[in-house]
Design a protein around this nucleic acid. Structure first.
Lengths: 153, 153
DNA sequence: CGTGAAATATCATAGCA
DNA sequence: TGCTATGATATTTCACG
């Protein structure tokens, strides 16, 4: 994985866009099948994928795991505002909590917004307690997901 | 993709967990290479993957695209509270905005929390305007991402 | 950037432990 | 559940337009 990410917009042609859509649907689709779908040969598709990877457009291929099936029946979104002088400690604490799968630092009154999976609601309190000396928190439980993470190209 | 998702926790053995980690790192890793990594033969790994897919633990394999390289230089998190009687219209509007790549409906004062990509800051106002008759909004710009979406198993 | 062809590697299935 | 064996596919490289 190279590091020559372009900051400027690298526009995709129709075929690259289609390849990415197909790989978003199933990242393990064989190159030959991708080639059939876009009306090209396997080697050309292979080269296109290499270019997309090396230019940084494609940053990876990831398996997607269903947290529900693993017993994580709740998702929560926790907004945090660190207490004075506690920023680094808060970030370390956030990083150490495995149930936090994502966290952004943002402008505005809330400083951090994190996404959290829980096996049941009783897990929430200990986790929030472990943060309470570092930040004020505000927790929302996810009831449904009108837009599931989707592709933007 | 079958639909026999188990609601109860289906615990992974060490090998399944390792396979998922390897596929989280690179979902296109050939089965033979996975097999080498876990000290098994390709057919057995293949069967394990099938089982993980059919039990719903693995819900898919997705390409990951770097929005920065495509010119989306800003990420924002928008919290929304729908105005009376506008819930369905708001959900439809949210769904129609391609830049919103994710949206959750949550408990609490904010009803919806969405993640948004922007090519530049001037794109923000038109998008918020298109929502303003359906919901009150509160927007935070992402400054950094202390925890990038990570695997929970 | 694309192709065809050939060498190498991988996948899928079936039969057995 | 796992392994070996095997035929069918897929990937990769290269010479060439």
């Amino acid at each position: 994985m190279r590091n020559n990410l372009k900051k400027e917009e690298s526009q995709l042609d129709g075929i690259d866009a289609r390849l990415i859509e197909l790989l978003y649907d199933n990242a393990r689709t064989p190159v030959t099948e991708l080639a059939r779908a876009v009306g090209m040969t396997a080697p050309s598709v292979n080269e296109r994928l290499k270019r997309l990877e090396e230019s940084g457009v494609i940053s990876g291929y990831r398996v997607e795991v269903n947290p529900l099936v693993l017993g994580y029946s709740l998702m929560a979104i926790v907004r945090m505002r660190q207490l004075p002088g506690k920023m680094k400690a808060l970030e370390a604490q956030i990083d150490s909590i495995a149930e936090i799968v994502e966290c952004d630092k943002v402008t505005g009154d809330d400083c951090y917004i994190a996404r959290l999976y829980l096996k049941d609601i009783s897990q929430l309190d200990p986790i929030l307690d472990s943060i309470s000396e570092l930040a004020d928190t505000n927790t929302a439980i996810v009831k449904s997901t009108p837009v599931t993470r989707r592709l933007l190209i």
